[in-house]
Design a protein around this nucleic acid. Structure first.
Length: 437
DNA sequence: TAAACCTAGCTTCCTAGCAT
DNA sequence: ATGCTAGGAAGCTAGGTTTA
């Protein structure tokens, strides 16, 4: 039996989607290209390893090799299971996979998206005013396609399979049917404010053209006489994205919008991974995580916070007294960041201590110490009152005050303290409010 | 003749279930 | 509980052919 015949037998025995059947045939063709019509019994493990070496040497990526070898392994398992391979029960494709390098998420910058959107909007105005065909026609339609991918992050195939009746305009939802999803799970995505006008427009145009409920909604062939296909296909969408890529100089594809959406959602303060996972219709959270590109700025800030928390860096309090009547004495000013960076830590501390010592006692009590100490004592007392535990003398145990200072320095719990200070004007919160942690 | 369409190969994504 | 793998399903790209 030849590999091609075996593959056809395998496909016939399964209920596969067209694209899956295709990849099995491609794998078998690749094998045949190398081995010719060699019977499957004669293709052994060593021969496959030699073939692997050749293909990888020719520049085939490791990931692609794994796809082919994995599909052929499946077909060979089928042969073993059905007794087509009598001389062995060991699959020659076993352990022929290689470890590919992991690549980063493919996102599109906001700037590029904005430029593409502006261009599409300009084309739409141009077509409306001149009634002439623009570079991307009909521009209103492709703008709607662009916005659907931007706002919902659905797959290209999901868009192509959308029917008129899948849009619930009253409920402002789009239904993505399970049979059209890679994951076979039905789900819905909301029609949000920015997307609604585009959905409305396409529904309106579809209504004018008497679309039936089961008709493909995003079918450019019915909205423009420049196309003659029956149903819109992947190529037509990709051709439009190629034009956007050429125009903006940034690679754009529907799937990259999916990655971008996931990354953007995870940049939000709430960072709701479950929400992101639901929107992308993943069943495994690890899949969602693999979409999200690391936010380097956030990473930098996190590492910085760690350094501060562990004492690797000293926190420098920067105070903006501009425009205030109650400026602190010049001696209280902290050294500039440039000075701090130049001096070793111990020197900075020494310098501050010397400056502070140079201020007279009255000034100190009025300007800072008194306010700070009172605030800390009050907050500490409040804390113990809330916890229903006896108050601790700060002179004996300064833990509370250190903790509160740390919290304040990190911007935590400040709101609570603010409220309390507002209720206790005697504390002099106004002296505090200008300070930023 | 440009744009649409088609085809094939390459690359990536996704999950259930098994092994550790 | 976690990681790994088999199996399945797309998505992306390039080059050739057809059509308006």
């Amino acid at each position: 039996m030849t590999p091609l015949k075996l593959t056809e037998d395998y496909i016939a025995a399964r209920d596969l989607r067209a694209s899956t059947e295709r990849i099995y045939r491609i794998s078998a063709n690749m094998l045949t290209e190398h081995f010719g019509s060699t019977p499957i019994e004669e293709i052994d493990h060593l021969a496959i390893l030699a073939w692997r070496k050749k293909r990888l040497g020719d520049g085939l990526s490791k990931r692609s090799w794994n796809t082919y070898s994995s599909h052929l392994r499946t077909v060979w398992n089928f042969a073993i299971e059905h007794g087509f391979l009598t001389h062995t029960t060991v699959n020659p494709f076993k352990k022929t996979g290689v470890i590919p390098a992991k690549r980063g998420s493919k996102t599109v910058s906001n700037d590029a998206i904005q430029r593409a959107r502006q261009w599409l909007n300009a084309l739409e105005r141009e077509e409306r005013c001149t009634l002439e065909r623009s570079q991307i026609t009909p521009a209103w339609f492709w703008l709607a396609v662009f916005e659907v991918f931007y706002y919902t992050g659905i797959r290209l195939n999901a868009l192509l399979c959308l029917r008129v009746k899948d849009i619930d305009w009253n409920g402002q939802m789009i239904l993505i049917r399970g049979e059209t999803e890679k994951t076979h799970r039905e789900f819905s995505v909301p029609i949000m404010e920015g997307l609604a006008p585009h959905i409305f427009k396409i529904l309106e145009e579809a209504r004018k053209l008497r679309f039936a409920p089961n008709d493909q909604l995003f079918n450019v062939n019915r909205f423009s006489r420049h196309y003659h296909g029956k149903e819109m296909n992947i190529d037509q969408v990709e051709a439009m994205y190629r034009k956007l890529t050429t125009k903006t100089g940034v690679r754009m594809t529907p799937h990259r919008f999916r990655h971008t959406l996931a990354t953007d959602l995870m940049k939000q303060p709430e960072r709701n991974i479950h929400l992101t996972k639901s929107l992308l219709n993943h069943s495994n959270i690890a899949t969602t995580m693999s979409y999200v590109e690391v936010d380097q700025n956030l990473l930098r800030a996190t590492l910085h916070d760690r350094s501060l928390a562990q004492g690797a860096l000293r926190r420098v309090r920067r105070v903006d007294y501009s425009g205030t009547a109650q400026q602190l004495p010049p001696q209280m000013c902290l050294p500039s960041p440039e000075t701090v960076n130049r001096l070793p830590e111990s020197k900075v501390l020494q310098q501050q201590t010397q400056r502070f010592a140079g201020i007279n006692a009255d000034q100190r009590v009025k300007s800072k110490r008194n306010v700070l100490q009172q605030a800390l004592e009050l907050a500490s007392a409040q804390l113990h009152c809330t916890l229903n535990s006896p108050a601790i003398d700060p002179a004996v145990d300064p833990t509370d005050q250190s903790l509160l200072l740390t919290l304040m320095a990190n911007g935590l719990g400040l709101g609570t303290l603010k409220k309390h200070f507002a209720a206790e004007p005697a504390i002099g919160f106004s002296s505090f409010s200008k300070a930023s942690p």
